[in-house]
Amino acid sequence: MIQFNNVSFGYSKQKLLYTNINLELTAGSVYGLLGKNGAGKSTLLKLMAGLVYPLHGKLSVFNANPTKRAPSFMHEVFFIPEEIDTPSLHVLDFGAEHMPFYPKFNNEQFLDYLKEFDIPMTNLNNMSFGQKKKVWIALGMASNASLIILDEPTNGLDIPSKRKLRKLIASVLNEDTCIIISTHQVKDLDSLIDKIILVDEGEIIVNTDTDSITEKLVFKLSPDISSTEQYLYYESSLAGNLIVKERTPEDETTKLDLELFFNAGINNKNGIKQLFN
């Protein structure tokens, strides 16, 4: 669905952020894009949406070139930025003004989602940041675009809304959709993510599905660290040691601990890269 072929990008030609990256994203999955602050997560998302243009290489999204910004491409892409800005309009007018641009827009879904999110039927000006954000999310999901990009969607959402967002994402995903979520708060959405892209310092460290991670790695809390075993990464605390190690056939599969996996990927880049590439 999305293909990066030797794509390079930088806000200036002298200082490249990404050099010759190759990446493929397929439909039917929820991608979690992880990386530290300033690692270039948002930039990667903007590349896919055609908001910034690659300096070199070929990038295709649904076999189209995003930089052409053709309407037929754009009505398949919905980008919800971290910060949002809404006009002073009644929420229903807001929906009505966007609806005709998206051929697959479903107004009933939009109203349903607004109800799910407890959005008051009033002017957007009277709403809090979190409510405005939920209106945008509802709009994006109701557009039925094939590629939905959410940059830090849980920022500004209260606890019940995060739960409803998870339900919403689970309900809209189908074989033709690709949902990409960039997030710092991995715990908010980790049971929904089934593919992981980990970026650091302008390189793609991992692009894999969570099944292969749990297939290849074991995450566990162990009271002691034995020097004979090989760990990819561990964190020590009074409660014990959180360890990441390569899984042997004897080991049971464990639940993926995204936070631990993230730290392992950042701190032991080569170890993780060797396993997954």
Partner: peptide
């Protein structure tokens, strides 16, 4: 999936 808030693929 919606009820448990997990990915339908799971």
């Amino acid at each position: 999936a919606v009820d448990l808030e997990v990915n339908p693929n799971t």
